[in-house]
Each structure stands twice: as structure tokens, then as C-alpha cells.
């Protein structure tokens, strides 16, 4: 029960309370660039969600098995060359960034091939933004968040397992989708509005983004409230 509740809290937190776009301000470029129409925004959001889930899965697996200090694969290999207590301390966390970017780039490539084959109109409307998911900081941010909950955790039992990591990836992507779809809906309405000339285009988009972020601040404290309500403990 505790585990399910933990997953639930992580999901709510990633999707709403600490929304990647509107709380951390990562992944702004597709948020601004592909939020003209709702259907395109839904496509972009699902692509980001998919890539984020795959990237988090790959990065969690590699971090736990290879990169973190005392990871099974690396210490097993190192055991052939050095005494066991040294081998257990071998630390490859310097590789995290490059490995994550590697994983993200490959999964984006996979998504691109898939979309190109099965959804050509979506592929066309994405244009340059699909390859740009590669450099979407929201995805690297999700991977690094997962890493920060695995590497350097005081109590080993607190370290995130794959389920928690995937919950963050999927619901973080879902939060991105929510944000970009809301934005696209607003921008579709904005096209019909008489906006003063100095605010036209990017300016009003950024202002709307800021107001949205303020609105999402209203979710602050929902997690502790939920925890108090469901467990009876503050």
C-alpha cells in the first residue's frame, strides 16, 4: 500500500505540482514552438511522453546496473582486475550525462522512424521539432531527477526502483502534454483576438506561459495535503 501510494504521489507531483514546463521551466522550446494547434500539441506531447518513458527506462537500467557506485555489472567486471572491496567502490557516475544524451538521441531516432512510417501527416507537422526532442531539456531533466534518487541516496532502501522511475517519466511527459495542450488551446483562441501590436507573436505567448505557470502554483502543497489525508500523518 505504501508503495502504491508513493507511486501515486510521484505521478501527481510530476504531472501537476512540479510540472516540468510550468514549475521547472524546462522543455520551453517545443512548448512555445509546437503549441499553435491542439492536435499538433497532442502529438508533440505524446511523442515527448513516449521518449521520456523510454529514456527514463534506459537511463534507470544503465545507472543501476553499470554507472552507480557498486553497480553489479561494473563491479563484477572490475573484480577481474582488482581486489573485491575496491571493485565494489568503482564509480562511473561521470558518464551519466553522455550516456543519457546517447539514450535520448537513440530513442528519439526510433520515434522519428516510427512516426514517419505510420503517421506521415504528424511527421510533416512536427518538422524540425521532432529531432529537437533530442535536445529537449525536459527529458534530460527527467533522467537526471531519476539519477538523483538512485545515486548518493543515504539509505539504500530509499533509492528509486524502476516503477517509481517510470512513473516519473510517464507522468512527467503527461504533465508536459497537459501544459502544451492548454497552451495550444489558448493560442488558438488568441489567433482570433485583437492583440495590441507590441504584444503580438512571441511576446503574448510568453506572457500566457507565465500566467499559466502562476496558475499551476495553485497545486503547491497538494502532495503534503494528500499525504496527510491518506495516511493520517503530516
Amino acid at each position: 500500500m505504501d508503495y502504491v501510494f508513493d507511486i501515486f504521489l510521484i505521478s501527481i507531483s510530476a504531472a501537476l505540482i512540479n510540472n516540468f514546463v510550468l514549475y521547472y521551466f524546462v522543455g520551453i522550446c517545443p512548448f512555445i514552438g509546437v503549441s499553435r494547434q491542439v492536435d499538433m500539441a497532442v502529438g508533440m506531447g505524446s511523442a515527448v511522453t513516449f521518449v521520456m518513458a523510454i529514456a527514463v527506462f534506459i537511463s534507470w537500467t544503465i545507472t543501476t546496473l553499470v554507472l552507480m557506485p557498486g553497480a553489479p555489472v561494473s563491479s563484477w567486471v572490475a573484480g577481474f582486475f582488482m581486489p573485491p572491496q575496491q571493485a565494489a567502490a568503482i564509480d562511473l557516475t561521470i558518464l551519466t550525462y553522455i550516456v543519457y544524451i546517447f539514450a535520448i538521441a537513440s530513442s528519439v531516432q526510433l520515434v522519428e522512424m516510427y512516426v514517419r512510417k505510420f503517421y506521415p501527416p504528424l511527421y510533416k507537422s512536427f518538422g524540425v521539432f521532432l529531432p529537437l526532442i533530442t535536445t529537449n531539456c525536459a527529458i534530460l531533466f527527467a533522467c537526471l531527477t531519476v539519477m538523483s534518487h538512485i545515486v548518493g541516496v543515504e539509505n539504500p532502501s530509499d533509492a528509486w526502483d524502476l516503477g517509481r522511475a517510470l512513473a516519473l517519466g510517464i507522468f512527467g511527459g503527461l504533465g508536459f502534454t497537459i501544459a502544451i495542450v492548454i497552451m495550444a488551446g489558448i493560442r488558438e483562441e488568441l489567433d482570433l483576438c485583437d492583440i495590441p501590436a507590441p504584444f503580438k507573436g512571441a511576446a503574448i505567448t510568453l506572457i500566457v506561459g507565465g500566467i499559466l505557470a502562476m496558475a499551476f502554483m495553485g497545486f503547491n502543497g497538494v502532495d503534503s495535503g494528500l499525504r496527510a489525508a491518506l495516511t493520517g500523518a503530516p
Partner: peptide, 15 residues
């Protein structure tokens, strides 16, 4: 040297 070798091996096998 083991760390360097392991890093290289990790990247290579990922590739």
C-alpha cells in the same frame, strides 16, 4: 585504468 576501461567498454557496448 580500470575506470577508464570500464567507461570505454560501457560506451562501446551501448553503441
Amino acid at each position: 585504468w580500470v575506470t577508464i576501461g570500464l567507461s570505454a567498454a560501457t560506451m562501446l557496448s551501448m553503441a
